[in-house]
Design a protein around this nucleic acid. Sequence first.
RNA 1: CGCGGCGUGGAGCAGUCCGGUCAGCUCGCCAGGCUCAUAACCUGGAGGUCAUAGGUUCAAAUCCUAUCGCCGCAACCA
Length: 528
Amino acid sequence: MTTKPKWFQTTAIDYPNSRPHIGTAFEKLGADVQARYRRMEGYDVFFLMGNDENTLKVADRAKELGQDPQAYCDDMARQFQEVWKALDISYDCFIQTSHERHKTCCRKFIQKVYDNGHIYKGDFEGWFCPGCEEFKSDKVHAENAGQCPNHKRPLIRRVEPCYYFALSKFQEQLLAHYERNPDFIQPESRKNEIVSLIKTEGLRDVNISRAGEEWGIQLPFDPAFTSYVWFDALLTYITGIGYADDEALFRKYWPADIHFIGKDITRFHCALWPAMLWAAGEEAPKQVFGHGFVYFDGDKVSKSRLEELKKKGLDYLLEPMQIIQKFSSEAFRYYFLRECPYPSDGNIDPDQFIKVFNNDLANTLGNLLSRTITIPSKSLQGQFPGTAGRKPEAVAPEFDAGKLAAEVRSRVEACEFSQALQAIMTHLLYPANKYIGDQEPWKVVKADANAASLILHNVVESLRIASILLKPFIPRSAEAIYKSFNFPKPWDEVSYADAAELQAQPDDLRVTAELVDGKVKPLFPRIV
RNA sequence: CGCGGCGUGGAGCAGUCCGGUCAGCUCGCCAGGCUCAUAACCUGGAGGUCAUAGGUUCAAAUCCUAUCGCCGCAACCA
């Protein structure tokens, strides 16, 4: 019995005070490609997602709507998962931080950190707004002439007892960790950012308690306080794999292989989180990946921008569910993965969306499938005679399946999804379209059916390779392409190794796709 | 001097880490070919001082310095 290597990955947990938007979807998409790729490569994958509910904003939002906070959270969690499922995000577990399972985990963890002597009681002094009932930073105080920007009332100096996590103690250990594990923070620009932040500003101890709040997790050693959101939010990464209730599962999957996060929360994941884990006697995660953001036409999507888009009828582009309904989940996935370089920022643009879809998916990939199938289905009884046992030929002299598979593989592992897709297009699918045009099988078939069959065989092989390489990106379409022919290897068992060489098949190839009038239904109907 | 990113033919980008094989890709435009295919496909063409100015080098989009312009984060928006 061989044991599969494990792969544990997470995405950032989201605040459910509004519906999932385009940016959160972007994060899940990249993570999903990684998870699907790892599964294909034989990893035992655990893909964790969830919602971060123990924040006052959530409680406030529920109150606004006249709902019980828990009911509100559960409903939002349902809505989030609805979107993720529609997008084919293949998560294994969805955590809600307001659920008891998570709270048990937090208490156990926080108690451990406390017992290990990394939490101490002190005082917090700062500028407090009675209207907001919260402390404001010195910067807010300075920039607003001592007034609360929301309430336009003077901020008052206030001191209250609190608990601190001794983050500063871990500063040197963190810097040493980054040094020893150069891949811990990806991409590299994020790492430079965090290192210089720590070196110039230093790490201060963090106030991890909030007083007098009902919504949240009580500190196990002092129920008068609830936990600061970050101190509980990060713990979802271990809750989901059984930190408090399934030791074996936890030991199997921890440490995480990769945490996908937005670049804005890098410091929490790269500094606070490893320190917390060490404080509780656990290992730090192996890697934190800070992806870029999605902008609309080069700008951030602000409230005012949203109003403007609504007037133009383009606001649907910000609502994942509406894009999926208007186009398809595959179109959605492809656009973002192709157009937005995951490590850096990307753009959503309605015209570009249609261009990318039509060019890559409709004209190149979908059309290639159509033109490959029509000749055998109309002239050769759906067969490709003479192909049994024959090793297909490359569609271009410079095409090298092994090289392409290796490139796509390394791009995917580095989360450079747009480059992976570009490589598939440039090295495989564009040449395949050119090949079929140059060889003119529609003419050849009139004189020599077998010769035409062999030409098309080479194109079918390109489609087979493309479908496998594209499987993590557009799983449904890739499957449809693969299953358009009688390849003996089951779809669920293909891996990138199967795409790394031109393969002979035992039997003559045959069209197995559903046909109407001798033609396949367009896989990606052009958007006009 | 808070931190980070970007500036490449009309548009959007890749290439920059590890200088030469680089000026590449998609769209758009012009001309032609083809007709198997989703009015799809293929070929050719026009169009670029690789932001600017210096420097290093036999050689710079690529390395160094400075300048200009745009953007993001910095404040619980991923």
